[in-house]
């Protein structure tokens, strides 16, 4: 825990472990929502992608025919990080 930032003057490190593919379950979508809120609270946020979670980083995903929201367009791909 380090001092600084907002949220009562405390910034902590939050690491989110992503182990699921992006659209088979809702874990990835709702997981991303927590990550964004954590960042909005100016916390020290990192994400790790393991197992099928690596599919979340695939470029050019098209969810139209699955009738699901394509929510990962904003994530950088490994090549960009």
């Amino acid at each position: 825990m380090e001092e600084g930032g907002s949220s009562g003057g405390v910034t902590k490190k939050f690491m989110y472990i992503n182990r699921r593919a992006p659209y088979g379950t809702i874990y990835a979508l709702e997981g991303l929502e927590v990550v964004l809120i954590g960042a909005a609270f100016e916390q020290d946020v990192s994400m790790v992608f393991l197992d099928d979670g690596v599919f979340q980083l695939k470029k050019g995903q098209n969810t139209e025919e699955a009738e699901m929201k394509n929510f990962f367009t904003g994530l950088p791909s490994p090549g960009d990080v």
Binding site: S7, G8, K12, F14, E33, V34, I37, G38, F41, Q43
Partner: peptide
């Protein structure tokens, strides 16, 4: 309530214990 409550307790607690996938 909102997800901010999760972040808040993450900041305030010594340990954040996560149960389930």
């Amino acid at each position: 309530s909102g997800l901010g409550q999760l972040i808040e307790v993450g900041i305030q607690a010594d340990r954040l214990m996560v149960f389930g996938d």
